[in-house]
Simulated assay, not measured.
Amino acid sequence: MLEVAGLRGGYGAVEVLRGVDIDIARGEIVALLGSNGVGKTTFAALLSGLLPCRGGAIRFAGHDITRLGARRIVELGLIQVPEGRHIFPNLTVRENLELGAYRRGKPNRAANIVRVGETFPRLAERFDQKAGTLSGGEQQMLAIGRGLMAEPELLILDEPSIGLSPLLVEEMFSLIRQLNQDGLTILLVEQNVLQSLEIADRAFVMENGEIRLSGRAGAMLDDPELQRSYLGLV
C-alpha cells in the first residue's frame, strides 16, 4: 500500500530526514518508533503533503504522491491524525466530525457519523457538546473519529497516546488494535515503544532522521540486546 524510498526532507537549511525507506502492506499496523526529535513527525508531514520532499519517492496505493499536495493525498485516502489532536474547540463534536469528510467521504457523512458514535460511545453522548470541553482522552477519540470520517485507506496516527493517563493509554491502544482488526491499515508513529510493539505487525526504529532498525514487532519485543541498544529499555 505504501512504499517510501530514499525520502529526504526538513525545514529551511536543516535536513531532518536523510534517506528513509519504509513500506506498509494493506491490513498491517506498522509502528514508526523513536525518541522525541528524531524526525517521526516530519516523516508523517511529508507523507501527507504538508512539507515538500527534497529527495526520494513516495508511492501510495499505486500512485506516485511524492509531489502531490495535501488535498489530493487526502482524496486518495491517506489520512493523518496529527500530534496534539488539533480539534476545533469552539465547534461541537458533530461539527468537528463533519469537517473530517470535507475532502473525502462526504456522500456517506451521515452514516459515518453513526459509525464513529458506535466506535466511540462517549463521543456519541457528546455530539452537541463543544469539543473544547472534552477531556484529553475524549479529544483524542474525536481526532481519530474525524480521521475515520474521511474513509481512510491508510490512517497515520501521530503520537496518539501523548498526554493521556496510563489507563487511557491502554484504552487507546486497544482501540487501535480493534480498528486494524476491522480492516484498517495503520501507521502508528509513537514514542511508546512497548505497547506499540505489542499491537504492531512490523516496526521501524528511527534515529537522527534515518531508519536504524526494522523487523517483526514480536522479534523486537523479545530481543533484550535490541531493547537496550535501540529502544532505551532495560
Rank of each mutant, 00 (worst) to 15 (best):
Y102H: 10
V169P: 00
P52V: 06
D201F: 02
I156T: 01
K106W: 15
Y102E: 03
I79R: 09
A219S: 13
G9L: 11
Y11A: 05
R72Q: 13
E198G: 01
Q191V: 06
S135C: 04
T66W: 08
K40H: 09
L47S: 09
G117W: 04
R212W: 13
A143D: 12
G232P: 01
D21R: 02
V20Q: 10
M220F: 15
L7W: 11
I199V: 13
S174G: 09
I211D: 01
N192E: 02
G37R: 12
V189N: 01
E83G: 06
L33G: 06
R18M: 11
R103Q: 13
A203G: 15
E151C: 03
L51V: 01
T42S: 12
R72W: 06
M141L: 09
I65C: 04
L188C: 04
L46K: 01
T42L: 10
F88T: 08
P224V: 03
E153V: 14
M149F: 14
A70C: 00
E3V: 07
V169W: 02
A150P: 09
G136Y: 03
A61C: 10
G27P: 08
I58H: 14
G9P: 09
A150G: 13
A44T: 08
R103M: 14
G105A: 11
Q80L: 05
A143S: 15
L175K: 05
V189Q: 01
A124T: 14
E207M: 05
G10C: 06
H63W: 07
R67W: 02
V20S: 10
H86T: 00
V4E: 05
G147S: 10
N208C: 06
A13V: 06
Y102R: 06
G105C: 11
N90S: 07
N36H: 11
A131G: 02
D64E: 15
R94S: 05
L134H: 12
G37E: 12
R228V: 11
F204R: 05
T133E: 15
L76D: 08
V4P: 05
R216N: 15
L76A: 09
K130A: 15
